[in-house]
């Protein structure tokens, strides 16, 4: 077995264990830290798949920004208001996700997929060229989506002035 394959299995195993931890951890902070681990491991998988630029983005965006965002959200919501972690829906969730996994397993293994060819590295130059030529319009649309999301997040999270409709409903 070549080295990259061994590395993949190890990294994938760690990712899965961390993800499992995210969904079952008793503590919210643990869950958040395990999620960061899982996301960084995903970045490693990108690296193994020769997508180095994507790995960089993954670690920057998820490992950095997203984790910090999540931790801030946790800090802004005091611990005493946090509900019990799991509720009675967990059994249904387990059954559903189990069924979905079985289906995906069947789909992945039953069909004959094209044999994996020799992975080829894609240079950052090519990626940049593709993004700004073939994918120029979706790229611009994505930037607009980000802008709208930014403004929307601002508007929604802004503190409500007393007497506004939303504030009245909240106090009611």
């Amino acid at each position: 077995m070549e080295l990259s394959a061994v590395a993949f299995y190890v990294v994938a195993g760690v990712t899965l264990v961390a993800a499992l931890g995210v969904v079952v951890a008793r503590s919210v902070v643990y869950a958040a830290l395990l999620l960061i681990l899982s996301l960084v491991m995903t970045g490693l998988i990108y690296l193994l798949l020769l997508a180095d630029f994507l790995a960089l983005i993954q670690i920057l965006v998820y490992g950095g920004t997203v984790s910090i965002l999540l931790l801030f959200a946790l800090m802004l919501t005091p611990p005493e208001t946090r509900p019990e972690l799991n509720h009675r829906g967990w059994a249904l969730g387990a059954v559903t996700s189990g069924a979905l996994f079985a289906l995906l397993l069947v789909a992945s293994l039953a069909d004959k997929w094209p044999a994996a060819g020799a992975a080829r590295h894609i240079s950052l130059v090519d990626l940049g060229r593709a993004l700004f030529s073939t994918w120029a319009v979706p790229f611009e649309v994505a930037s607009v989506v980000l802008l709208v999301a930014l403004l929307g997040a601002l508007t929604i999270a802004r503190s409500t002035s007393p007497g506004s409709k939303i504030a009245r409903r909240a106090s009611a």
């Binding site: 899965l16 969904v23 919210v28 972690l85 799991n86 249904l92 969730g93 559903t96 996700s97 996994f101």
Partner: peptide
């Protein structure tokens, strides 16, 4: 990984989780 995510969405009560 995806199914773990599904489980998490269905089982958790905390919105951040």
């Amino acid at each position: 990984l995806f199914c773990l995510g599904v489980y998490g969405v269905m089982a958790r009560r905390n919105a951040v989780l």
